[in-house]
Simulated assay, not measured.
Amino acid sequence: MATLENLMWGDRDDPRRELAELFPGEGDAVSVRARDWARRVVDAAGVPREDELRVIRTLRDAEPRLSLKPARYLAAQLNV
């Protein structure tokens, strides 16, 4: 949820911090686990990875605690 400070000055939070809360682990293992999960969810839904908006929506539907910025980060990671 957006705080007043984020609304005024912009959201400078690192999306990897939220991913670390959702996918506990050490160091790079968090990013690997989150990407693997995202890949499985998107593939199971049959959403093309190039369709970033649908990928983000699919990820957020699969994990309601996932906010927009980390979902965008994961969607971008799937296209790398």
Rank of each mutant, 00 (worst) to 15 (best):
M1S: 12
L4V: 11
E5L: 12
L7N: 04
G10M: 02
D11N: 14
D11Q: 08
D11S: 10
D11H: 04
R12D: 10
D13H: 07
D14P: 00
P15Q: 09
P15L: 10
P15M: 09
P15I: 10
R16T: 07
R17N: 00
E18P: 00
L19V: 02
L19Y: 07
L19C: 04
A20Q: 08
E21N: 10
L22F: 04
L22T: 02
F23D: 05
F23A: 08
F23T: 03
P24I: 01
G27V: 01
G27N: 06
D28R: 14
D28V: 03
A29D: 11
V30M: 04
V30T: 03
V30N: 04
S31M: 11
V32C: 03
V32A: 13
R33A: 15
R33S: 15
R35A: 15
R35Q: 15
R35L: 15
R35D: 15
R35F: 13
R40F: 09
R40S: 12
R40K: 14
V41L: 13
V42L: 07
A45K: 13
A45Q: 13
A45N: 10
G46N: 06
G46K: 09
G46I: 06
V47L: 12
V47S: 07
E50L: 15
D51R: 15
E52A: 11
L53I: 07
R54I: 00
R54W: 02
R54D: 11
R57I: 01
R57D: 05
T58K: 06
T58C: 15
T58W: 09
L59Q: 04
L59E: 02
R60L: 03
R60T: 00
R60G: 02
R60Y: 03
D61A: 14
D61P: 00
E63V: 07
E63G: 03
R65Y: 00
L66A: 12
S67G: 05
S67W: 08
L68S: 02
L68W: 09
L68V: 01
P70L: 12
A71S: 11
A71R: 09
A71G: 05
R72V: 10
L74D: 02
Q77H: 11
Q77F: 08
Q77S: 14
L78E: 02
N79D: 06
V80W: 03
